Amino acid sequence: MKNLQVVAAIIIYQGKILCVQRGRHEFDYLSDKFEFPGGKVESGETGEEALIREIKEELSMDIRIDSLFCTVEHQYPDFFIELNCFICRVSSYRHTLHVHQQSAWMDPGLLAELDWAEADLPAVYQLIVEKPF
């Protein structure tokens, strides 16, 4: 079973959080689910370097990483994921979707209304309770 080191950006702009929706995925349980954008940490990269690279590739956005928000460990049926979620800022809401089917800027209190990937749920619930921005 694979063990993946993954990073995610909780991107905040004017009090709203960017949520992105996956398209079809090789694992049905991840298809069409919302997530915080990000991806796998490659060999030789720090989590922060991977996150900056992934957000540039996926959304054509430049982010400023503020801090690590939480770490989630989750066992999916086909792999184990360690997900480090970072609070990030941007200077504009503009982005281009390169790998996701849609996006939404959401008020933190409404995050639970989306259909999230399971590994993202602990961060979603923590954001709703703590409102760290």
Rank of each mutant, 00 (worst) to 15 (best):
K33P: 10
P122M: 11
L4C: 11
A8M: 08
C88I: 03
E113R: 07
S43A: 15
I17M: 06
D32S: 10
K2Q: 10
I128Q: 11
V6H: 10
W116D: 07
V99A: 12
A119W: 08
P37H: 02
Y125C: 08
G39E: 08
I65Y: 03
I12E: 12
L83Q: 13
Y76K: 12
L111R: 15
F80T: 00
Q21W: 11
A50E: 01
F86V: 02
V41T: 05
V20E: 00
S31W: 01
S103I: 04
V124C: 07
Y125F: 11
V41C: 07
A112P: 15
G39N: 01
E57L: 09
G15L: 06
E130Q: 14
E82S: 14
K16W: 10
R24N: 07
V99K: 14
I81N: 09
L59K: 03
I55M: 06
W116T: 06
K2R: 02
T96Y: 00
H95S: 00
K56N: 14
G15C: 06
L68T: 08
A119N: 03
K33G: 04
S60R: 11
Q5I: 08
P132V: 04
E26Q: 14
H98D: 02
F133L: 04
N3Q: 11
F80G: 01
Q5T: 02
I12C: 09
K33L: 08
